[in-house]
Design a protein around this nucleic acid. Structure first.
Length: 922
RNA sequence: AGGACUAUAGCUCAGUUGGUUAGAGCGCUACCUUGACAUGGUAGAGGUCCCCAGUUCGAAUCUGGGUAGUCCUACCA
């Protein structure tokens, strides 16, 4: 074995082995366990958030696989309609070609080409993380099978009246030329203006003033509204005003939606270009006057003078024209929320179009109930509130997108605009007995990508066929996801699955936090703070990292800033840490919090942990390979104190890890393992094993017992650690297992360790704690008195009880070795004690003679520090015990515990004071 | 505007049902290349558990109020 752990070669070797041997596919087992991967964008690449999520799923999957369950981790990607189409369009653009030049069919071919070319990135990355996904079942939302499922669902919902088509206001992206759902619109506060315009009253005696943030929409105004109880304007309700620039007259109406306090209290109403105005328009029977075209330039029923003008140019023009007419009252600065498309970043326009909708309200009922009655549980539970809040106020879901890349809507129109929904044109003709010569035209639109991902849990298992996989693995066990897509995806999956399968898609939703950078900032390409998990695994030099971060940016002007920040944060680039260290870091961060700040310091610590594991195994192998380590069960075995202790501690750790897995507390699992392996197994057990193995007087059975414990405990914790650190555990396990009497081709398929409570050994724990106490006491004096470790000491023990005496007798060898002692003397009562530095373990006094070693003042200082500490502590306890309320009301055992504590501390204090006095007299 | 979450060591975070001397990792200080490991060892320093009040014998933990921050939902033209 190498002296340091070198992950790179080990990782690729083992992943290939596992995959080629088919270990990732479900095997027969007790019960089924299934996780569906939240499908990443097929043309995308993994970021830190993915890494975190995949790593958590892999731990769960490996854990349940080792527990003997029939385990499926379904892999797949989604087609990411808008994102992918945008990428391909941009590529074409670079060649000076638009998608319209190519035409729909050719364009889609190009997209498929791009998918073939770039689709491997994400799956390669998943493999690098060690994800044990069943690649043989890989699916893609645009696959034939999944497309069939999408079509089936659309048709059935349509026939049930749960999908309808309607002309409504939608969120229109004027650059992407498509409708998007409410969830795809992000509103951020931006600085803008509030323009005040005078609208003259028809008849010519005066005007009223309206305020607007979007002046250009005035071309489409259909009314001016005031509050019904607003006395200032009561006399105007029912009158008409002249709408400037349009030659139209519009009425003044009363509606209590109007806020009297805001602006002038008069609101211009533009039903075709504002969601609230649309609703008000419906209440008052106002006309919908569209004044935009698909590019959000002025169009529709707008006055000719403005036709074709871009909306923002028109805004300027209209303000200028009104000003010229003397109708501009004033312009105020105003901060407002501007809705932008989450993909394009452009300002979204409410725009009147024909779209397809899902009646979400109807589907929401059962979906709410499933969470209320516990069929589905969120972890942490608080996310259920988020879910309920959204579901109880759910809006109909606009599912049509004016894109080419996606599932085309299976609807055909005749020349009269009648719509026919069915599997194909032929099916539609047959069903409705339409003559062959009658022309039919398929709907141009495709479905929202989330429409197909909503079917993910069952469509990937073969639905609408009733496959054996569907029967076995559905409902799935747990969904692992971020809270940012509870609405987008989780809620919609629950609705669709309940409707079509009459069962939940999953029993548990584990909601994890979002990975942020070290400053707590969200990682994003435009901020230039993204980290590629693969770069943490393989390492990356600074120049490559900088280039990677500033290339292909939407806003190249930020490049300099990003370069500077990157050079500052990673002056040396990023070192290679390996997959296991990265994974363990993720787990250690997976607590219940919402934000996960990724600190590079953590991963370095866990890389060191990997090295520790590697070297511990190296030590064990050096001592066990080619030796008798108890493989022959018929030979006698004697277990020493340390052996019994570490076996017990292993059981405790196994129980803690299991509990952590059951509660999705991966941070607890990683902490328990880290603590056990480093602070117990390595720091103490391995050190204790050295004198045990080196003891010339030890019996063969005892040495065999130590070797057997070394190797078996190691073998067990390798399995315990495997779901979190798959590679290093596999590599080591291969050589360790045979010596521990285990065999098998891979650790992956070995049973997960079960805690055996009967092997926990409280007597051994107590003895080891005593041993540690004595050693630490001596080391402490050594440390503070600057006595080098090379100097062997003689210590004297005094005032101990029977237990102390026994423990000393049994462990003198260990004490000598670990505390570097030449001799230990037990002082009987009456024996003369020299001037010495003192440590206490319970009642037992440990004396280190000062002669020539220890400075009087230094020891006095040390003692006085200790005395002060004890006195403070004693005062606190005494205060408690002198309080009759405490003594009367607190549980007897708590009081007894405090009394005990006080007695022990008093005794200790007394001894230290005596010691202080004695030394000061020297 | 409504709601949620967070606040613990210099930094990143644990802290189960109220009773610990409030913990870990990283960082820091001192010493140490001893045969698994310097990606290491040993020892150490470091905390007003955001603030105020309350409940309680007892509060980092429970309740109320406040402050700061983050996020979500809905928005006033």
């Amino acid at each position: 074995m190498d002296k340091t752990f070198q992950p790179a070669e080990i990782e690729s070797r083992w992943y290939q082995e596992w995959e080629s041997k088919g270990y990732f596919a479900p095997r027969d087992g007790d019960g089924a366990y299934c996780i569906m991967i939240p499908p990443p964008n097929v043309t995308g690449s993994l970021h830190m958030g993915h890494g975190f999520q995949e790593t958590i799923m892999d731990a769960l999957i490996r854990y349940h696989r080792m527990r003997g369950e029939s385990t499926l981790w379904q892999v797949g990607t989604d087609h990411a309609g808008i994102a992918t189409q945008m990428v391909v369009e941009r590529q074409l653009e670079a060649q000076g070609v638009s998608r319209h030049d190519l035409g729909r069919e050719q364009f889609i071919e190009k997209v498929w080409e791009w998918k073939e070319e770039s689709g491997g990135t994400i799956t390669r990355q998943l493999r690098r993380l060690g994800a044990s996904l069943d690649w043989s079942r890989e699916r893609f939302t645009m696959d034939e099978g999944l497309s069939n499922a999408v079509q089936e669902v659309f048709i059935r919902l349509y026939r049930e009246g749960l999908i309808y088509r309607g002309k409504r206001l939608v969120n229109w992206d004027p650059v992407l030329h498509t409708a998007i759902s409410d969830l795809e619109v992000v509103s951020e506060e931006e600085k803008g203006h509030l323009w005040h315009f005078r609208y003259p009253l028809a008849g010519g005696e005066g005007h009223l003033v309206v305020a607007t943030t979007r002046p250009e929409t005035m071309l489409g105004d259909a009314a001016v509204a005031v509050h019904p109880e607003d006395e200032r304007y009561a006399h105007l309700v029912g009158r008409m005003v002249e709408l400037p620039l349009t030659g139209r007259q519009i009425p003044v109406i009363a509606d209590d939606y109007v806020d009297r306090e805001f602006g002038t209290g008069c609101v211009k109403i533009t039903p075709a270009h504002d969601f609230n105005d649309y609703e008000m328009g419906k209440r008052h029977g106002l006309p919908l006057i569209n004044i935009l075209d698909d590019d959000a330039a002025i169009g529709g029923e707008a006055p000719e003078a403005y036709l074709g003008m871009d909306r923002f140019a028109a805004r300027k023009q209209i303000v200028a024209d009104l000003d010229a007419l003397g109708l501009l009252e004033k312009i105020d600065d105003h901060t407002l929320k501007v809705p932008r498309g989450d993909r394009s970043g452009v300002v979204i326009e409410p725009y009147l179009t024909n779209q397809w909708y899902v009646d979400a309200r109807a589907l929401a009922g059962p979906a709410i109930e499933a969470v209320e009655n516990g069929d589905i549980q969120f972890v942490p539970k608080q996310w259920e509130n988020t879910y309920f809040a959204w579901m109880r106020d759910i809006q109909d879901w606009c599912i049509s997108r004016q894109l080419w890349w996606g599932h085309r809507i299976p609807a055909w129109y005749d020349d009269h605009g009648h719509v026919y929904v069915g599997e194909s044109e032929r099916a539609v003709r047959e069903q409705h007995q339409l003559a062959d010569e009658m022309s039919l035209r398929q709907d141009d639109d495709v479905l929202d990508t989330w429409f197909s991902s909503a079917l993910w849990t069952f469509s990937t298992l073969g639905w609408p066929e009733e496959t054996p996989e569907l029967a076995k693995f559905h409902p799935t066990s747990v969904l692992v996801t971020g809270f940012d897509i509870i609405f987008f995806w989780v809620a919609r999956m629950i609705m669709m699955t309940l409707h079509f399968r009459n069962e939940v898609p999953f029993h548990t939703v584990y909601v994890h936090g979002l990975v942020r950078d070290a400053e707590g900032q969200k990682m994003s390409k435009s901020k230039g703070n993204v980290l590629d998990p693969i770069d943490l695994i393989d390492g990356i030099d600074l120049e490559t990292l900088v280039t990677k971060r500033i290339s292909g940016m939407m806003q190249p002007q930020l490049a300099a800033k990003i370069e500077k920040a990157t050079r500052k944060q990673f002056p040396e680039g990023i070192a290679p840490y390996g997959t296991d260290a990265l994974r363990f870091t993720y787990y250690s961060l997976a607590s219940t919090g919402r934000d996960i700040k990724f600190d590079i310091g953590r991963i370095e610590g866990f890389r060191n942990f990997c090295n520790k594991i590697w070297n511990a195994a190296r030590y064990v192998m050096m001592n066990c390979e080619g030796q008798d380590c108890g493989q022959d069960e018929s030979l006698p075995v004697e277990l020493g104190l340390a052996d019994r202790w570490i076996i017990g501690k292993l059981q405790e750790t196994e129980a803690a890890v299991e509990r952590a897995f059951e509660n999705y507390r991966f941070d607890h699992a990683s902490q328990a393992l880290h603590e056990f392996i480093w602070n117990e197994y390595c720091d103490w057990y391995l050190e204790l094993s050295k004198p045990a193995l080196g003891d010339p007087e030890a019996s063969e059975a005892a040495v065999r017992g130590t070797r057997r414990t070394l190797i078996r405990v190691l073998e067990a914790w390798l399995r315990l650690l495997h779901p979190l650190m798959p590679f290093i555990t596999e590599e080591i396990w291969q050589s360790v297992a045979p010596l521990a009497g285990k065999s098998g081709p891979t650790i992956m398929l070995q049973p997960f360790p079960n805690s055996a409570p009967e092997a926990m050994d409280s007597a051994a724990n107590a003895d080891i704690e005593w041993l540690k106490g004595v050693i630490v006491g001596i080391r402490n004096i050594r440390g503070e008195m600057k006595i080098s470790l090379g100097k062997e000491l003689t210590v004297q023990l005094r005032n101990g009880g029977e237990d102390d005496k026994r423990r000393l007798q049994e462990n003198a060898t260990f004490l000598k070795k670990l505390a570097k002692l030449s001799d230990i003397v037990w002082l009987e009562e009456g024996d003369e004690a020299p001037a010495a530095a003192t440590a206490l373990v319970g009642q037992l006094e440990i004396l280190i003679p000062m002669a020539g070693l220890i400075d009087k003042d230094a020891e006095l200082a040390r003692l006085s520090k200790e005395v002060t500490r004890l006195e403070t502590e004693l005062k606190r306890i005494a205060g408690k015990l002198n309080n009759s309320n405490f003594v009367d009301k607190a549980p007897a055992e708590v009081v007894a515990k405090e009394r005990e504590k006080m007695q022990a501390q008093e005794l200790a204090l007394q001894k230290l004071k005596e010691q202080e006095q004695r030394i000061s007299q020297l």
